[in-house]
Design a protein around this nucleic acid. Structure first.
Lengths: 148, 148
DNA sequence: ATGAATGCAAAAACTTTGCATGACG
DNA sequence: CGTCATGCAAAGTTTTTGCATTCAT
């Protein structure tokens, strides 16, 4: 709840990014914020909006998500090569593990890994700009289980 | 050189994978082995073959690369979300750093990172099946440089 | 009012697939 | 020879773009 305040905050966030506070953009932001799903594809956002009765063109979703990414409002990930997913860029940096069976996504952060990455890149004469770490996992089988 | 021996080895590798040693498959394997480029897209392979006078259909390249991946002969990577690149799966595991300016790809391996990944996954009750780590970098600016 | 944003449909980029023909074992 | 592989073109996916219309400021 507290949609009132949120809308104001969102409007401010958009303007700060030099984007007009249009209805589609506010709606997309809302979905990304409150959506049960922290990692949604453009299509996911599109359908979520339809369910709420808002009919925003898929092209707009793509355009807006790309603008949000540029503005640092969302992060784009490519867990599989086939399609991108987006998540609100709130909170500190983290990486992801994706369950190959269920698609479940778990976020994690490890200072050790972060530091090693910086060191390695440095040692090669580069500056680290960004990185993408995805661990593909399966839930550990309990003894005498694994059946489905 | 030593094309003779290589061809025999390749033929064996294909048969071992349950694939007929056809001309297109042998050619694609050759390109991936000797190509100056260790990380090629399907299109790259296609054009490399054309330059050698071999006209293999792009569809075949895709099919064969996918079969090779399944057979463990090549690895598929998605450095950017837009298109896949393939590399011969020779030698030990390694990760990649990609230069955002030049596209240059540098391979590296870090036992520390590998270990942390396994530990983290374990701690969450999962088994690590695979992972993808890509560091996006830029060559470090030398003092009073950066111009191009 | 005016430049920015949207929607629609068309196009683009990458990859897969159906089917007739051709090659490997 | 039988089966698997190839080539071509057509279809599939995901994402982008052109253009007329609508909206925010």
């Amino acid at each position: 709840m507290n949609t009132e305040t949120d809308r104001v905050v969102d409007t401010f966030e958009l303007k700060k990014a030099g984007l007009k506070a249009t209805l589609p953009r506010l709606r997309i932001l809302e979905i990304l914020e409150k959506g049960g799903d922290r990692h949604m594809s453009a299509e996911d956002v599109y359908r979520a909006l339809l369910e709420v009765g808002e009919d925003v063109g898929l092209a707009t979703i793509y355009r807006v998500l790309t603008q949000f990414e540029t503005a640092g409002i969302v992060e784009r990930h490519n867990f599989d090569g086939s399609h991108a997913v987006f998540e609100i860029a709130r909170g500190p940096h983290h990486d992801h593990m994706v369950c190959l069976d269920t698609g479940e996504v778990v976020e994690f952060f490890d200072e050790e890994i972060e530091r090693r990455q910086r060191d390695i890149v440095e040692a090669h004469g580069f500056d680290l700009q960004d990185h993408s770490l995805v661990l593909y996992v399966r839930r550990k089988k309990e003894a005498g289980d694994g059946r489905r």
